[in-house]
Design a protein around this nucleic acid. Sequence first.
DNA 1: TATATTATGTAGCCTTGGCTACATTTTGAC
DNA 2: GTCAAAATGTAGCCAAGGCTACATAATATA
Lengths: 141, 141
Amino acid sequence: MGKLPAEGTQARRFGKMRSAQSTALLEDYAELIADLLASEGEARPTDIARRLGVSHATAIKSISRLKRAGLATARPYRGVFLTEKGHALAERVRVRHRLVVDLLRALGVPSEAAEADAEGIEHYVSETTLKAFAQFLKSRE
Amino acid sequence: MGKLPAEGTQARRFGKMRSAQSTALLEDYAELIADLLASEGEARPTDIARRLGVSHATAIKSISRLKRAGLATARPYRGVFLTEKGHALAERVRVRHRLVVDLLRALGVPSEAAEADAEGIEHYVSETTLKAFAQFLKSRE
DNA sequence: TATATTATGTAGCCTTGGCTACATTTTGAC
DNA sequence: GTCAAAATGTAGCCAAGGCTACATAATATA
């Protein structure tokens, strides 16, 4: 059976997980907005909503959270843009996403599953683990 | 840049992620309750709360969700038990957790980071990816 | 046994992140 | 330039999952 870790250790792990969970959504929005800006030249709430599979009302509400977090700016009827901080986050997320997908692929996970699973996994991978992933991929070349 | 996947594909991936997110907590509770039952002979709300790092009130509320989901039973002041369904879930989660930790370790992630990250990652690993993990580990022996 | 401590349970509040329904603004087609 | 369609925004609802504060039950100790 899963021999129990010390109470404090276990509580700390779960706490870390909960905080990762709360930033996961912001990360996804930032990454998607960056992608839309790059490929379409603009990021409109309706497109964001369609791509995330949520209602436009939900997307708009989340966008205002991004604004509150200092990650995005948006004026009514004028699309969404990322702040410096938002761009930096999006870039970090993009790199991490790529790394997770590449690792899964290297382990023999089919592309579609790798892309889909990475969407969830990426938010919970620590720097330490990311380094190990990169190392492993490099050693494989 | 992250070339955008087709709209529908992307929306489906995010939807899957959201549904995984909503079961993650139930999975964690089931696993922890199983561990406590195995090692202590009982699973008390206060212990569960301490191990998850939440208040006992939060734990009790979550336990009632487990009951509603048919995963657990509990009578006032008498501890928490798992139903058949709850046990089955806990067992599946335990196996998956082990596999994820072992894989991370095999990739060179230090134990503590592997255990901590697995806590978040495990909920988002598909059957397909799990199989690939097992295969990879086997090929390494 | 009486009492203090600990565990459990309840109530009520908050934020997040979904939704629908409705109002308003912009845009595009005539 | 008008008017219909599409996009955007607002309001209000819900459940999940946190919390604190308070009440009650069980247990351990003097």
